[in-house]
């Protein structure tokens, strides 16, 4: 079965790039992708990750004081 994928949305590309870096340090498989139109009208990028890693990702971002907007299921 294909794993469930989620995205985390950020205010800015700089935050998304920081998020990507922090996740890679913690070995969470992430990829920056354009924000799906259904989620936001913004033209920026968001970070795709396996939904199973959501708790870890939230913990990392909280610990490193990285602000994010929202997490959504694809």
């Amino acid at each position: 079965m294909k794993e469930d994928l989620c995205v985390v949305l950020f205010h800015s590309t700089s935050l998304a790039l920081r998020g990507e870096k922090l996740c890679r340090e913690e070995k969470i498989p992430v990829k920056l992708i354009p924000v799906p139109r259904s989620l936001s009208s913004d033209c920026g990028v968001c970070l795709r990750f396996p939904c199973a890693d959501e708790d870890r990702l939230r913990a990392i971002f909280t610990a490193r004081a990285l602000e994010f907007d929202d997490i959504a299921r694809l």
Binding site: T13, R18, L32, V45
Partner: peptide, 22 residues
């Protein structure tokens, strides 16, 4: 163009800038 378009080259360009910031 960094951080505008979301395709891989745009993301790569954004990364260049972010890495310099770091």
């Amino acid at each position: 163009n960094p951080g505008r378009s979301g395709h891989r080259l745009s993301v790569d360009a954004g990364r260049v800038i972010y890495d310099a910031r770091e």
